[in-house]
Design a protein around this nucleic acid. Structure first.
Lengths: 139, 139
DNA sequence: AAAATATTCAACCGAATGGTTGACTGTTGT
DNA sequence: ACAACAGTCAACCATTCGGTTGAATATTTT
């Protein structure tokens, strides 16, 4: 049982992917790659960082399987490889019901407040009748 | 413009959340918390690790806003706080179109292969007529 | 009052991280 | 042939990480 636990979470992919995503520079690089293929220098220029530094970040992304590279002469072209991001999202999907649950709770609380304020309006008829539901953006 | 870039990815929340998720022990702890509130010792026991070690992991999760704690006497109860996971998923959602795009590409390629093999069947009428679409699990 | 329990704290350790610099390896343009 | 260019490599540095141990702080039980 404990062993199941240990095995269940020995998912080196996720380790690498989440670690890769934990750095803002690397997230920015990924974002940049959504615009299309870019060379290493192109990816490096926006950052206040040596080329070698940026190169390291790209290697981390490559190691996590988030970037593919094909070399053409002396220039290395990088390409977004999103499949592993899908795995990460799949992992997060397991927890979806926990935040939607909380949002549902919130909605229930707000509805309850609405009922309460409706009652107080009945007791204080001086305040004007408002539209059936108080406007409230749950976004 | 470069500045926009720099600002756009200064999202310390995501840094902390993704970093927290990059460790398998911490992911296991989160998973455990989906079953409900657990004390620090309860969370620690499945792991081959000192209590202090597990405690540190929990503090990391807390720091990332993924766990809330309420103290009752000498025992600390931990609770999953999924909202920040939603933020992470939201970030990943931006990239969804890139893996679905690739899946669409794949589908298109397979369709093309089907057409090609259909043509070759026409040229080699010895092979028996099969059902309209070759069965193929895209999963 | 004393012992047991739940947990953190502080100091320490080795390994990994994010970054730099300078030298090296290829490739391309003159 | 040579200089410029694209990029990696290797060594180094400070910091963080994941982990340990032992002592400290509360709280609960006996």
């Amino acid at each position: 049982m404990i062993l199941n636990h240990m095995v269940e979470f020995q998912t080196p992919h996720l380790d690498a992917v989440f670690h890769a995503l934990s750095d803002p520079t690397r997230r920015a690089i990924l974002h940049r790659l959504t615009e299309g293929e870019r060379t290493v220098s192109e990816l490096a220029t926006p950052f206040n960082m040596s080329l070698a530094g940026a190169s390291k970040h790209i290697r981390v992304l490559e190691g996590a399987g988030l970037v593919r590279r094909h070399v053409q002469g002396r220039t290395h072209f990088c390409q977004l490889e999103a499949a592993r991001l899908a795995e990460a999202q799949e992992w997060l999907r397991t927890y979806e019901r926990f935040w939607t649950a909380r949002l549902d709770d919130l909605e229930e609380i707000l509805r309850e407040e609405d009922r309460a304020s409706a009652r107080s309006r009945e007791q204080l008829p001086s305040s004007p009748a408002k539209s059936e539901k108080t406007s409230r953006s749950t976004k």
